[in-house]
Design a binder for these strands. Structure first.
Lengths: 135, 135
DNA sequence: TTTTATCCTACTTATTTTGTAGGGTAATGG
DNA sequence: CCATTACCCTACAAAATAAGTAGGATAAAA
């Protein structure tokens, strides 16, 4: 399951998508509108900024804004930044790979199944973008 | 990500699949063979028994064994019993549904995306069975 | 140079996961 | 019928992760 933090991230991004190219949006505005704890949201947006999804301006008239067109940012990217691995096992993760101990990947049926699942997940999550968050 | 517990469960099931219809297998034997903490494994197998995946015999010559043919038990079932929800959001889970607060499912893009992901996951996890664990 | 608003680190608390303890219950075999 | 075997069950402890808080540093603008 996606963490609460990740769900907060998506709800915050909704606001930023809606205001895309309309100037920076205050953290406090997002927090209020989406009922997210302010300081927690601060951390989340900072993480997204470090990854290059968001950028920010300080001082009066400042705030956060999207760097790219919403339709250019896959949902998978957000999940990876905020939540971490998408795959169901460390040994099949593309971005967070870790060898599983006591298990030979060449002779592990579960491994093979989870590769299929991962590919099925990514087929959707890499295609769907922030633009698809809006209905 | 699947919990360690769930990964233990699958590894234990491998043993039981291999010995399908060859009589009960001791918890201690599985624990030793797969390097799983004995008492922890006991809990896992008990959970699987309560769900009807496994059955057991007490006393001398006792142990655990599969109730159904391995090819009749979907991987999804094991995950649900040991790990819980498969879906990435509570509001799209079939077996563990929970309404998400501050979010109207009829107007939530993320909801729709996660339904697609869930269906893609289940297409595989409901089709693949314990028989597929063996290679 | 004051105000505004993000940046950054560290810390606390809550929750979940992982693992342990210890006795209870049922079946088997002598 | 009773001792042994092996699963059954509950509760608890420890470790890890997630969620949220605090407080000042930094930078931009007016």
């Amino acid at each position: 399951m996606l963490s609460k933090k990740t769900q907060y991230a998506f709800r915050a991004l909704e606001v930023l998508v809606k205001k895309y190219e309309q100037g920076p949006v205050l953290i406090s505005e997002i927090a209020k509108k989406k009922k997210i704890p302010l300081k927690f949201l601060e951390n989340i947006l900072l993480q997204l900024k470090k990854d290059g999804v968001l950028d920010s301006k300080k001082g009066k008239g400042g705030g956060y804004f999207l760097v790219h067109k919403p339709s250019k940012v896959p949902v998978a990217r957000i999940i990876r930044v905020v939540d971490g691995p998408i795959a169901m096992l460390p040994c099949v993760s593309l971005y967070f790979y870790q060898k599983c101990k006591n298990c030979d990947e060449k002779h592990c049926g579960l491994h093979d199944i989870m590769i299929d699942v991962r590919d099925a997940q990514l087929a959707i999550l890499e295609k769907k973008t922030l633009a698809d968050l809006m209905v």
